[in-house]
Design a protein around this nucleic acid. Sequence first.
DNA 1: TGAGAACTAAGGGGTAACCCTCGGTTTTTA
DNA 2: TAAAAACCGAGGGTTACCCCTTAGTTCTCA
Lengths: 206, 206
Amino acid sequence: MTIVIADDHPFTLQGTQSFVESYGYQVIATCANGVSALNMIQLRTPDIAILDINMPALDGLDVAKKVQELKLKTKVILLTMHNEMTIYNKSKEYGVYGYILKEHAQVELKNCLSEVAKGNQYASGSLLNDLKSVRETGTGELDKLTFSERKIIELIAQQKTSKQIAEMLFLSEKTIEGHRSNIIEKLGLPKEKNILLKWAMKNGLE
Amino acid sequence: MTIVIADDHPFTLQGTQSFVESYGYQVIATCANGVSALNMIQLRTPDIAILDINMPALDGLDVAKKVQELKLKTKVILLTMHNEMTIYNKSKEYGVYGYILKEHAQVELKNCLSEVAKGNQYASGSLLNDLKSVRETGTGELDKLTFSERKIIELIAQQKTSKQIAEMLFLSEKTIEGHRSNIIEKLGLPKEKNILLKWAMKNGLE
DNA sequence: TGAGAACTAAGGGGTAACCCTCGGTTTTTA
DNA sequence: TAAAAACCGAGGGTTACCCCTTAGTTCTCA
């Protein structure tokens, strides 16, 4: 089984490599960014590519997308610092085989590798717990909103005022204000000034 | 020369250790968090402690502060993902010997270690360049602010209102409002509602 | 020692985000 | 078909942020 690893932090790259090799897997290349990782994957089509999500220029998710588009047989495993629901959803969309938080990476990656080696998809247990808690408190709440409400909260996240949103959607400012109140109530947010702006920015809807 | 390393990401921890050891230095302990790092430093007083800044509970900066307070002879080197001026300033305050960005950690740490081994302070060249560029474009703008202004914008980023800030600092609400205006002017921000909140959240001051 | 910066504080004015209530229309769905 | 959502809009109110000006104190530094 051949493996390519990409991470922009040299230490993490080296650490990941030596860890993977300590379990007897063969690392055929390491890359410091997404572009060279993609090149290497196209050139050598390894069995597995372990990619950091946060890389300059082309990130791990972009590479996963490209791998899918190019119909390469390489299975992608993503490593990430942050457990964000949106990234997790996208990664499923791009046919990623594994998604691992760096915090509990040691055990996870070992299990993940052996599962992926068998051809199975892998979603780590602790990851699911983490994501569950994220869903309960955070971005997953968006499901409760209607279509127009979601459209509006996106514009709020883009720093638009009610007046601007009203103009863009050809509606009255008062209508937008009404929607705002409904959104706040549905999300169970506290009664504060700019609470929607804060929420939208915190939940990375930009 | 004895070395202790602390990082909450196992791969980075392992990578840093094997890197340091490859140059013939002796790593006597590795820690997954700041608390155990501090314990280890007090117990063994190594020559050098290489600490990640972003760790849960007690971060690298906190440990550096403690080391200084306890008058330990251990020299602290900080590793960081983000190049923030405020952290750099604080690290100087706490007598930190080295401050290195993980992006160009390999060469940097090598030089840094050999310099610190000689007893010299080390500030990396590329770091200075990075910090300069940061100052010109983004978060570095904080330098333009005075001490109290910086304190206030931090609280703004923590979602505090002027009233709350006033109570916390035992000042008049009007004083805080005055500071807000000064900050906006110094940062050259446009005249919009909540512009400071937006700026602080965007620039990750939480 | 005197100018300038920083810090403190006040008054007064504008706007936007939020709150509440009340109406109406359309679409969905039980 | 009737109730239930969703959608649209209005009036009236509170509050927080921002703007402007003025002004006294303290501190630093040339």
